[in-house]
Amino acid sequence: MVLEQTITWHLACNTEDIPADGGACALIEGEQVAIYNFARRGEWYATQNLCPHRQQMALSRGMIGSTGAEAEPKVACPFHKKTFSLKSGECLSGDDYVIKTYPIKVENGQIFIGME
């Protein structure tokens, strides 16, 4: 990937810190990053923790899941159930918000978040 050359990887936490099929928030370089352990599919995702709708730091506490024929992975904000794609960050429930997504990798039981 071209991206990997321009980003810095930051250690976030250990894999067991993030509950299976759920999320938790890590503080990295002053940013609140929501990290999701999509254990059913063996996938990991990271997005901003802020829900753009009411500016609440809550996405890491939301329920994750998938939608549609392509099984797009998503998270639902616990406040008003706005849902966002974990891949593209796009709002899937009809609003025009887009949230930031971060590159994520797991090595030796440790989770790293990529930042530019």
């Binding site: 899941g65 998938s66 159930k81």
Partner: peptide
């Protein structure tokens, strides 16, 4: 089927 969502989970 699938991975569930915020409707069926709770």
């Amino acid at each position: 089927k699938g991975d569930g969502c915020e409707v069926c989970k709770p």
